[in-house]
Amino acid sequence: MKPVFLSAVTALMLNVSLSAPALAGAEDIIVDGAWSRASIGTSRPGVAYMTIRNTGDEPVTLTEIRTEIAMMPEIHRTSTNEQGVSSMTPAGEIKIEPGETVALEPGGLHAMLMRLQRPMAEGESYKMTLVFSGGGEVVVEVPILGVAARGPEG
């Protein structure tokens, strides 16, 4: 698995440019294996997956995601009930305990990208900003794979 990008430097610079005590959390976050499926046009919502690891000693909470590719990005959770019926609901804030990894993966948590600003074309990539409680931010470069991709390797 190709570790897809997390520039601690970028994250720190962003943090510095924000208000002073805002560093909590984000510098201990490692994001791996980010990927998206290509979209068909812009009318359908897009999706992004990745793993988010907290290597620090304190819990961190993912409060918001932002990306230039979609006006309304939001973490959603797919759940399937006993009758085999799948549904999606906004997941709210995601708390990540020290040493814990949260996976955004098919059929579970995922970044749902609503109101796409442009088609997500296979082979391209875009930036997504993860915002943590305390104001720390991590910028992730998300490569766009095919519509039928099943994981970060395609």
């Binding site: 499926r37 068909i40 009318s43 359908r44 919502p45 897009g46 999706v47 959603h76 797919t78 799948s86 999606m88 098919p106 059929g107 995922h110 749902m112 990208l113 519509v147 039928a148 991709a149 099943r150």
Partner: peptide
């Protein structure tokens, strides 16, 4: 449904595999 971002493309990708 084709507006389904997660479960449907995942399953159809699985089926294709």
């Amino acid at each position: 449904f084709t507006f389904c971002p997660d479960v449907c493309p995942t399953t159809l990708g699985d089926i294709s595999g």
